[in-house]
Design a protein around this nucleic acid. Structure first.
Length: 688
RNA sequence: GGCGGCGUAGCUCAGUCGGCUAGAGCAGUGGAAUCAUAAUCCACGUGUCCGGGGUUCGAGUCCCUGCGCCGCUACCA
């Protein structure tokens, strides 16, 4: 029909420190797989590349916490995710990983090339260095006392206790998280990608792509509006792709302990995985056709959190390198919520793919998810909806149509395709649908309108049921056997068409229908438009495609989720309590707690959380600032009796003097309530 | 507080460059049919398109503003 297109499709490399959940699938994986499967049926020259992103600090920290090596962590999740993706029907041509030697080499070559072209800015700067471990310390690897709250185990970038963001130099008594040695300031060198310099070029390029999704263009514009900032592409870390030694030497630097920053090497993973794919195919240069021939359509499927990397940073890298194609489109999706709430992996509030696959069929989730993708805005997944769509649409409309047709053919036409006779008006209408639907559905997929594709696909199945009903073959069987034969013939043809156009979203079901109809596994999209089943051809007995999902099964999943947040948090709290540091009574005596009454309260300008309070401490009146504006209004506070730390050293918060601190209790949900006293007692009373 | 996004039927969502009485599926009510997984098919919607202004011959769609929700960000619980 049309000339063969060469298409390279990628899905965001999942980070190998956890399993895959629904949000991932809806954002980057399922749409890409539908797109790719469609193009394969269309006969396009398409390959689909993905893999594990295995570098970066979180993986290191996790390895340390578990007392294993980073490689152990990534091995675990690489295997797990690869397996569950396969079981879900993700049809990657290659699923690589960024810890592979090919990837290390490819990223180093990429870096070397940009270095040769003098793209980078090399900056000398001073950073903390661990003299024992002989490595520079990333912010996260410096621990010390928080200058603001005095917490002794604050991270170099943030204090977990008081939440304030820090830089490692702020810490009092800093120490290395790895060896506990005292870090020293030492000069180091980092390579920066001068994005600011590329902004004009990038804007021009983006302007040529006004057909991209509005949500994607909107995000990009806001980055441009802020002005692009130069970004360091190297890091002093022991886990990652090392800086090529020759380049380090060029700058008189020791390359050891210096790696490419993970955001730099991860997208190059698409290229290295393609190279490995070509090697596996026994044609090592084959990858070049996909990455270096300008006629290739490169399409990145990602979630919205990844837009800046795929629409600005990676394209800038590719442009400056010079040998590669730039993405034709980046159809990023928004986020998927769960039962009306945000997903939270740390609270285990998510539906994990490997867990799902132990209980349900992959096609059910593929269908339900694809029908409710967050294409233009955040969407919501609920188990009740999942059950309804599975039962009402997959089982009742699609499954039942195939079943009633095949069963009928067996019962009254001895399991053979009955002959096609003369067509009446209704028959011709159905044939017309068979002819036109595939190209309409294909267009929708081409335009990344997957939800519309799903809806229209099911409309065709609905029409098929209506046709069956209106033709009443159970009556014509006696009155007009020829008409009956024609009806069943066309219903079988329609089942075949449905199976082909469903393949991108329901690959397993499609194959089961092909088996039932005794047709080859190598159907093409164009076959869907034709009546390819021959008169008299044998078909297999009917098989139930989708079994109904019962209420109690769904109820269990809902309950599991409802409990997921809470118990987990309790565990976290208990853990913290057992790890709690003990203090002496003398330490406690240092804190002077007193009862006070709030006299006045007003909001602090330009701060969401802060209230400025005047309090009566008995012998004196004072002003304090409290971060409780999101939980208490100024009016309701006046007259309240509170507990304050009276001897806290004064501080200025957003320009407002704070002379003391009130006490409040908060839970892990972020609920907050003030501490108060049980009975009347004078202001200024001491608490012990 | 700053920047960005969102607010359409009971529920989940469509509404392309502003243009005919604002749509789909589900749920609900009534009916037809009995080949089929009690499945199917048909009929039925007085929705302040969050509120208020404005631009326009015409606005769910564009502009301003208020409210509510979400994200990023700043701010000692």
């Amino acid at each position: 029909m049309e000339s063969k297109q060469r298409i390279l499709v990628t899905s965001a490399l999942p980070y190998a420190n956890g399993p895959i959940h629904l949000g991932h699938l809806a954002g980057a994986y399922l749409p890409a797989d539908i797109f790719v499967r469609y193009h394969r049926l269309k006969g396009s020259d398409v390959i689909y590349i993905c893999g594990s992103d295995e570098h970066g600090v979180p993986i290191m920290l996790r390895a340390r916490a578990e007392g294993v090596s980073p490689q152990d962590i990534v091995d675990r999740y690489h295997e797990l995710n690869k397996k569950s993706f396969a079981a879900f029907g993700m049809s990657f041509d290659f699923y690589g990983r960024t810890s592979s030697p090919v990837h290390h080499r490819t990223s180093q070559d990429f870096f070397r090339r940009l270095n040769e072209k003098n793209i980078f800015i090399v900056k000398k700067e001073k950073q903390l260095y661990d003299p024992e471990a002989k490595i520079f310390l990333a912010d996260r690897f410096v621990r010390g006392t928080c200058p603001k709250c005095g917490y002794e185990d604050a991270y170099g970038d943030q204090c977990e206790k008081c939440g304030s963001s820090l830089s490692p130099a702020d810490l009092i008594d800093p120490r290395s998280a790895i060896t506990n040695a005292e870090p020293v300031m030492k000069e180091t060198v980092h390579w920066y990608l001068p994005l600011a310099r590329f902004q004009k070029k990038l804007e021009k390029w983006i302007n040529e792509h006004q057909d991209w999704k509005p949500n994607v263009l909107g995000q990009i514009k806001s980055w441009f509006a802020d002005g692009l900032k130069d970004r360091a592409v190297t890091r002093d870390l022991p886990w990652g792709v090392s800086i090529p030694e020759d380049i380090a030497r060029e700058h008189g630097i020791d390359a050891s302990g210096k790696v490419l920053y993970v955001w730099f090497d991860a997208p190059i993973g698409y290229i290295s995985a393609t190279i490995e794919w070509a090697e596996e195919k026994g044609d090592p240069d084959l990858w070049k056709a996909y990455w270096q021939d300008q006629s290739t359509r490169l399409i990145h499927f990602i979630g919205k959190d990844n837009i800046v990397f795929h629409c600005i940073i990676f394209p800038a890298m590719l442009m400056e390198h010079g040998d590669y194609v730039l993405p034709e489109n980046v159809p990023a999706n928004e986020f998927l919520n769960l039962e009306g709430n945000k997903l939270s992996t740390s609270r285990n509030y998510a539906v994990w793919l490997d867990d799902y696959l132990q209980k349900f069929e992959p096609d059910s989730l593929r269908y339900v998810l694809a029908g409710n993708l967050p294409e233009t805005r955040d969407a919501d997944f609920s188990w009740k909806d999942f059950q309804a769509r599975h039962n009402n649409e997959l089982a009742d409309i699609l499954g039942n149509f195939v079943n009633r047709t095949v069963t009928f053919a067996h019962k009254y036409f001895s399991g053979k395709v009955p002959p096609l006779g003369e067509l009446d008006e209704m028959d011709r209408q159905l044939v017309e649908k068979i002819k036109t639907y595939p190209s309409r559905l294909g267009e929708l997929i081409e335009k990344y309108q997957f939800k519309n594709y799903i809806r229209e696909f099911m409309d065709l199945a609905r029409f098929a049921n209506k046709y069956f009903n209106d033709k009443e073959p159970w009556k014509t069987r006696k009155e007009n056997p020829q008409a009956c034969a024609t009806t069943i013939n066309l219903c079988l043809q329609t089942a075949k068409t449905l199976s082909i156009v469903a393949e991108p979203v329901l690959p397993f079901t499609a194959r089961r229908i092909w088996k039932m109809l005794n047709v080859e596994n190598s159907q093409t999209w164009d076959d869907a438009t034709k009546l390819t089943l021959d008169d008299g051809a044998e078909i297999q007995p009917a098989e139930i495609l989708f079994t109904k999902i019962e209420d109690d099964v769904i109820q269990k999943e809902i309950e599991r989720l409802q409990q997921a947040g809470a118990p987990n948090e309790q565990k976290a709290v208990e853990k913290k309590e057992t790890e709690m540091e003990r203090i002496s009574f003398d330490d406690f005596k240092k804190v002077e707690l007193r009862v006070a009454t709030i006299l006045e309260a007003k909001k602090v300008e330009k701060a969401d959380k802060l209230l400025q309070l005047q309090i009566d401490l008995g012998e004196e009146k004072r002003q304090i600032v409290a971060g409780i504006a999101q939980h208490y209004s100024p009016e309701e506070l006046v007259g309240k009796r509170i507990i304050v730390v009276a001897n806290l050293e004064p501080a200025k918060i957003r320009g407002v003097e704070s002379n003391g601190m009130l006490l409040a209790a908060s839970d892990s949900e972020g609920n907050l309530t003030l501490l108060t006293v049980d009975n009347e007692i004078a202001n200024g009373s001491k608490i012990s």
